[in-house]
Each structure stands twice: as C-alpha cells, then as structure tokens.
Design a protein around this nucleic acid. Structure first.
Length: 206
DNA sequence: AAGTCGCC
DNA sequence: TCGG
C-alpha cells in the first residue's frame, strides 16, 4: 500500500498539503530506491550563478535533471559528471499518478538533501516550459519549516512544518508562488537514523 | 539571488 | 532565540 490516505488535502494559498500521505513502509521503499539513484548519480553541491554554493546537496532522476552553475539555472540531460540521469523510481512515479491530476509523466525528479543547517531561500520554480503542470513535492526524514509567500517577491508569508511522508502539490494559481525552507529539525529519525531531510520534487520540464 | 546577514 |  503506497499511501495511508487519499483524503482531501489541506489548502494553504493554493498549495495542496497531504499530511502523512506515505506510510512508513512506503517511505522505506522509496528511500531504498533513492540509494540506487544516488549510487548512479552522486549528490553534488550546486553553485549559484553568482558564485555562492547552495547549502543543500542535490541530484536528479529522469530525462532531465536540474542544475545550477555559473551558466545559470537550467535542466540538463546529464549529471555534471557527464552521465545520463537514472530513471525515476516507480515508487515515486506512483505518488505523481495519485495526486498530479494529469496523464503526462514527469521528466525530472529533483532530490534535495538537507544536512544540518541546510536551507532553501524563497524562490519560484520557473525553469519549466509549461506552468500548467503542477510540481509535486515529497518530504522524507527530518521535519522542515516550509514557508509560502506570494506570486511576486515580498509581502506576508505563512509557514508550516512538513513531516516525513507528507506530499505537497503546487499547481494552478500556486504554481509560481514563492516558497522555501527556513530550517530543519536535524537529528535521528526512524527513517534516517543519522539525520537529514530529503525533498523530492517531480516536474514536467518540456 | 534556489545566498547570507543583520535588525527588531 | 525565533520569526519575519
């Protein structure tokens, strides 16, 4: 059973929040698949175009992966090491099919790993060709303080804690809403005894 | 600025 | 110390 519930999600500024969408055993199965992904496509520390490294480490699976370097933000068909990205694991595709409300398959699953102190500034996901498709986010491991802003920079924001197994759909009017992660509660978790948080985002790129 | 820091 |  991949998920505990398909109950209606909580709504916050158009973000659909499915609390405890994945059972603990589904999370374990997904983590096992992600170990294979990282073996094929090792985590790397992306450099921002203006020369400061991001605090998360990342990799991708799918036809494209998201990369950031001096040349800017973009999707690329290969890992920085020159090899193709591995396929998106089926355990992850199942979540997309359950919540995305589209028959189109995602062609990127971006994996962000948050070690102690890692954060993600408020940003938009805007490197994709068609904003009609949602972005689906899966949280694993340590809890994260997730912040939701507005379609433009500035203004009031709202925060909520995301837990392991939660799924968030950013679609419709919320597709281009600014969002980020202020901090994680770092420490041992049942899923990841050494601590850390994994966030997966599924995207249709082109 | 998908970062970092400082202020209140 | 934390949220904004």
């Amino acid at each position: 059973m991949p998920h505990a519930t398909t109950a209606k999600p909580l709504l916050l500024r158009g973000f659909e929040i499915y609390k405890s969408f994945l059972t603990p055993s589904a999370q374990e199965a997904m983590l096992s698949d992600l170990r294979d992904v990282v073996r094929a496509a090792p985590l790397f520390s992306p450099m921002t175009p203006y020369g400061k490294p991001m605090s998360v480490r990342m990799t991708s699976s799918g036809t494209y992966g998201w990369v950031s370097d001096r040349r800017g933000y973009r999707y690329a068909p290969q890992h920085p090491d020159g090899t193709a990205w591995p396929a998106i694991p089926e355990t992850i595709m199942e979540v997309w099919r359950a919540v995305s409300q589209t028959d189109r398959s995602p062609d990127c699953c971006l994996m962000n790993f948050y070690a102690e102190g890692a954060r993600m500034g408020l940003h938009q996901d805007r490197d994709e060709a068609d904003f009609a498709y949602p972005v689906v986010s899966i949280s694993l491991g340590n809890e994260a303080l997730f912040r939701i802003g507005n379609p433009e920079r500035g203004g009031k924001t709202e925060s909520l804690w995301l837990h392991s197994g939660d799924v968030v759909v950013m679609g419709g009017a919320a597709r281009l809403t600014y969002h980020g992660v202020d901090r994680i509660k770092f420490g041992a978790s049942p899923l990841m005894p050494k601590g850390g948080r994994i966030n997966l985002t599924l995207r249709v790129v082109d």
